[in-house]
């Protein structure tokens, strides 16, 4: 858990900073899904790309919702939590994807990310001192739990699939 943030004193984090952290977590995940969607498009895997764009939209929605809440409470007060301080809290890991991955595998990558985020917020909720911050982290943790369930449902609804695409015809790189 300590390798997920740098220079953030989670135990003493303020409500404003906790909300900013939450916004950045969603932003990071959104950016990662966008990268993944781009990667899949570049490698001619439209199905996986479509799924990652779908996830991108969801994370973007979460991000704006949280950002709105933050603005409501703290207006335009400057942010002291920065993107550079967090490391893949809800963003799926770069090594979770493959050029020829199936949609099921793409969902698996998402599930892994939601699980990571759940674990992060659970640990964070256990560390913080202030009640209102604890509430926020607990709320975020529960959201991640719901997401996990949703992704699991999606996986269950997928038709059974064959082996991954054979990549013998991949273009010769430069």
């Amino acid at each position: 858990m300590t390798d997920k943030t740098r220079s953030i004193d989670l135990a003493n984090i303020s409500l404003r900073d906790a909300l900013d952290l939450a916004v950045l977590v969603e932003e990071e995940a959104k950016d990662r899904y966008e990268e993944f969607a781009d990667q899949m498009e570049l490698h001619h895997n439209p199905e996986a790309a479509r799924f990652f764009r779908f996830m991108l939209a969801i994370e973007a929605k979460h991000e704006s919702r949280l950002a709105e809440r933050r603005r409501g409470l703290f207006g335009d007060e400057p942010r002291s939590v920065k993107r550079e301080m967090i490391f893949d809290i809800e963003a799926p890991e770069y090594d979770e994807v493959r050029a020829n991955m199936t949609v099921r595998q793409a969902l698996g990558a998402s599930l892994q990310a939601e699980t990571k985020a759940f674990e992060f917020f659970e640990a964070a909720a256990g560390m913080v001192q202030m009640k209102d911050v604890q509430d926020i982290f607990t709320e975020l943790r529960e959201e991640e739990r719901e997401h996990q369930a949703l992704v699991r449902q999606e996986i269950a609804r997928l038709p059974p699939e064959g082996p991954a695409r054979d990549d013998d015809d991949e273009i010769v790189a430069l």
Partner: peptide
């Protein structure tokens, strides 16, 4: 503030180009 790092003038995204990695 709950952070102890100096605030950077540049953010990580300022060093990221628009070129998509191959």
């Amino acid at each position: 503030t709950t952070t102890n790092a100096p605030l950077p003038t540049y953010q990580a995204k300022d060093y990221k180009s628009e070129l998509k990695p191959i």
